[in-house]
């Protein structure tokens, strides 16, 4: 917080006293002022971005979950599919975004697809790695108890993957916002991305930065939500921090 404050202060001083034009580098105070003046337009454009982010992310999450299970049950699939997914991650978003818009139009669809494209693979890797992290002895014990593969998956592999899942979720949710904005940048009726593009073309860097501020706030909020979700879903994580009970002769 302090570092962000100092940075903003330095920026403010430089923009005010260096004589640089506000159409080149507006001071933070001006950005904030303009953001307030244009708040209706900003909110209006943030809503489609949020919608694209959440729907796209939900899609990619479902797909990653389904595929991670498939890959966990049929190991050879992993070697067949992973190269394709890895290649999908090397596609430059700059090149692919306009193409997706060209193919699927200016609606919600291309945004959802791009968000899914950037978030699917990190989530899939996190889940698959999480299943692998299951303690081997827990698996052996469950099988000795008579549990089949499906029971072992539900009772051991899935819960073991939770920390990995949430680590992936935290990273992916930030990618998701960037992916949505990129898709809008390539073409949209409304959205933070197209708002930034228009502001830039109108020589209004203050409004570009205001939109950047909104997207940053959006990303932080979503990030905070994943942290909160993890706390609720994994109560034993916090319990682990407390002192172990039972000292003395019983140990």
């Amino acid at each position: 917080m302090i570092s962000v404050g100092l940075l903003l202060l330095a920026w403010e001083l430089y923009a005010t006293y260096s004589g640089i034009k506000s159409t080149t580098l507006p001071a933070p105070s001006r950005v904030f002022e303009q953001a307030m003046l244009n708040r209706e337009a900003l909110v209006d454009n943030a809503i489609p971005t949020i919608r694209a982010t959440l729907i796209g992310f939900a899609f990619s999450l479902s797909a990653a979950f389904a595929l991670s299970m498939l890959v966990d049950f049929f190991r050879p699939l992993r070697r067949a599919l992973f190269p394709v997914f890895i290649v999908s991650q090397t596609l430059p978003l700059v090149a692919i975004a306009p193409l997706v818009v060209l193919w699927f139009g200016f609606g919600l669809m291309p945004k959802i697809m791009l968000v899914a494209l950037v978030t699917f693979f990190p989530m899939l890797v996190a889940l698959v790695q999480g299943y692998e992290a299951t303690e081997a002895e827990i698996g052996q014990m469950l099988r000795a108890m008579g549990a089949g593969r499906w029971r072992v998956f539900l009772l051991a592999r899935l819960p073991s993957a939770l920390p990995y899942f949430f680590a992936g979720l935290r990273i992916s949710i930030t990618y998701a916002v960037v992916g949505a904005i990129f898709a809008e940048y390539a073409g949209a009726a409304k959205g933070l991305g197209i708002y930034m593009l228009n502001a830039k073309n109108n020589f209004r860097p203050d409004l570009v930065l205001a939109a950047v501020g909104v997207s940053a706030a959006l990303t932080l909020t979503l990030f905070g939500l994943t942290v909160l979700l993890q706390r609720l879903a994994m109560p034993w994580e916090r319990a682990a921090g407390q002192h172990p009970a039972g000292t003395g002769p019983w140990r």
């Binding site: 034993w236 319990a239 407390q242 009970a245 039972g246 140990r251």
Partner: peptide
Amino acid sequence: FERHFPAQLSGGM
């Protein structure tokens, strides 16, 4: 200790 998580218990327990 029924409601405790394993991490809250000592090795012997």
